[in-house]
Computed example of a mutant assay.
Amino acid sequence: MRPWLYNTLYRLGIAPWDTGVRPHLVDLVDSGRIKPEGGGRVLDLGCGTGAESVYLAGRGFDVVGVDYARVALDRARARARQQGAEDRCRFLQADITSYPLPGVDGTFDVILDFGALDDMTGQPRADMARLIHRYAHPGTVFVLWCFYARKEDVPRVRFAGVSRMHSMIEPGEEQRLFGREFSIERVESPEHTACFVMTKR
């Protein structure tokens, strides 16, 4: 999708993915799989209105949220102000397929992607994966949520759920993009979606 379309959906309040903090992330924090002590620097790619970024900032993480939708970022900043998390999260408008991100130095302990990589196809998807590799160091935890299926295994059109109208990660693609440098664990998710917790070796 084009930035103007994302901005329109956010402005109208009808972006279907803008549903609050993802339960998978809450589970990872509550279980201690990711924690701020000794490793709390987070990069939230495609952060949208900042639900995950602000949630983590409120739990002691230092977060950089990146998106290219200006309307979403304005709302993310407002959310951070309202929840008193401004000092722990920063939001910037940038292309998450282009390394380096402006003003973003070093590597991160946690990288999040809830629905950005699977929204890309071809070279942009490869470029975003390359950016993730470059911002990771040994021990980095990368959380990837995505539509996950072969095109032929989902309906051509569906009003609720995944269809061939969506772009998606195909089974095995996560290994091709990340398997050489990350250990990959898949956690339980609804049909035709996946949540991967990857750890940089």
Rank of each mutant, 00 (worst) to 15 (best):
Pro3Ile: 03
Tyr6Gln: 01
Tyr6Thr: 00
Thr8Ile: 08
Tyr10Met: 11
Ile14Gly: 07
Trp17Cys: 11
Trp17Leu: 08
Asp18Trp: 09
Thr19Val: 15
Gly20Thr: 02
Pro23Glu: 03
His24Ile: 03
His24Lys: 09
Asp27Gln: 15
Ser31Met: 11
Gly32Asn: 10
Gly32Thr: 02
Glu37Leu: 15
Glu37Asn: 06
Gly38Val: 02
Gly39Pro: 01
Gly39Asn: 10
Arg41Thr: 10
Leu43Arg: 12
Leu45Lys: 05
Gly48Met: 14
Glu52Tyr: 03
Ser53Asn: 06
Tyr55Arg: 03
Leu56Pro: 01
Leu56Asn: 00
Ala57Arg: 06
Ala57Gln: 04
Gly58Pro: 04
Gly60Val: 02
Asp62His: 13
Asp62Leu: 11
Val63Met: 02
Val64Leu: 11
Val64Met: 00
Gly65Lys: 09
Val71Cys: 12
Ala72Met: 07
Arg75Ala: 14
Arg75Glu: 11
Arg81Cys: 07
Arg81Val: 11
Arg81Trp: 08
Gln83Asn: 03
Gln83Gly: 01
Ala85Glu: 09
Asp87Leu: 05
Arg88Ile: 05
Cys89Asp: 04
Cys89Ile: 02
Arg90Ile: 03
Phe91Trp: 12
Ala94Gly: 03
Ala94Lys: 00
Asp95Glu: 04
Thr97Ser: 12
Thr97Asn: 13
Leu101Cys: 01
Pro102Met: 10
Thr107Met: 10
Thr107Pro: 07
Thr107Arg: 10
Leu112His: 00
Asp113Gly: 06
Phe114Lys: 00
Phe114Thr: 00
Leu117Ala: 13
